[in-house]
Design a binder for these strands. Structure first.
Ligand code: FES
Ligand code: FES
Lengths: 145, 145
DNA sequence: TAATTAAAAGATATTCTTGTCCTTTTCTGG
DNA sequence: CCAGAAAAGGACAAGAATATCTTTTAATTA
């Protein structure tokens, strides 16, 4: 088990890719993105459609069309994206699947797990969608392989 | 997405349940366990079969049979159980699904995520299967609802 | 306006996870 | 040894996640 679903992994990699590629104004086509993050093109198309409907990214049809994200979206926290795809179980759910994570009816891992969950919460809320544009442009960070 | 698969959640809850119920020598039947952790009985049976084959728990057929875990197994780390069910992706895998998490080809989340992953690793390695027996007997911790 | 481009939409396929059912084996107590 | 208890095993079913294919819609530009 990974921490994110496969769909969410693709979504994050794609949005990071779009953010950095479109940080100078150009749009990015689905083929370009799929190649850039090494994901199945048609499946990724579905994911991006969905993100577009949810307003996390923008898209334009026709020649010179493609996906892009604007300044405002680049400042949004990664948690918005993760939550849109995987829900908020990662932030609020019980580690052992109890219906309700709570202090009054805690599972054995509750106390320790809470700290970890909070760190995940923090990481995803502090990180913005456009945060890695520089490093990605310089090739210091990778989105494939 | 939760941190563990459903199968793994059931497995952990069941093993904790078995550990504490069998900490005085008696065995626990599948019906008892399923009721005790609020899980689908027949599915849980499959999971326990598997854990039994892998040597994480013991079982006995026939009257007065059931599942139990011995002193040695009670001292094993929770990570053994998680790894047996969900694999080690949680400990070593890349947050964004890159084939290989590495320092030389890091994904954007690598540095921050590493710390979280290490904490998960630590939690699961430090916690033993029998660790919560006292609290469970006293009803201070919960495995259902 | 026609041709082309690229995403949106809808339908279908495949695979994996989760869950159930039925039969078989093994053990125990009488 | 026999009857019943309980897990093991094999087969199947339902659902969700992942992936692909085809058609439609919208935009551009020539
Ligand atoms: S109750 Fe399980 S993590 Fe809080
Ligand atoms: S490369 Fe992604 S977590 Fe290490």
């Amino acid at each position: 088990m990974a921490i994110f679903s496969k769909t969410c992994e693709y979504a994050i990699r794609a949005v990071f890719y779009i953010a950095h590629k479109s940080s100078l104004g150009s749009k990015v086509g689905i083929k370009d993105i799929a190649a850039g993050i090494d994901s199945p093109e048609l499946y990724l198309a579905k994911i991006l459609q969905d993100l577009s409907r949810k307003g996390l990214i923008k898209s334009a049809k026709g020649p010179n069309g493609g996906f892009y994200i604007d300044e405002a979206a680049r400042a949004r926290p990664l948690s918005d994206l993760v939550e849109a795809v995987d829900g908020n179980g990662l932030f609020y759910g019980c580690a052992l699947g109890l219906k309700q994570c709570s202090e009054i009816n805690p599972c054995p891992l509750h106390n320790q797990f809470k700290a970890i969950r909070d760190q995940i919460y923090l990481l995803l809320h502090q990180t913005t969608l456009g945060e890695f544009n520089q490093e990605l442009l310089k090739g210091l960070l990778s989105l494939k392989k």
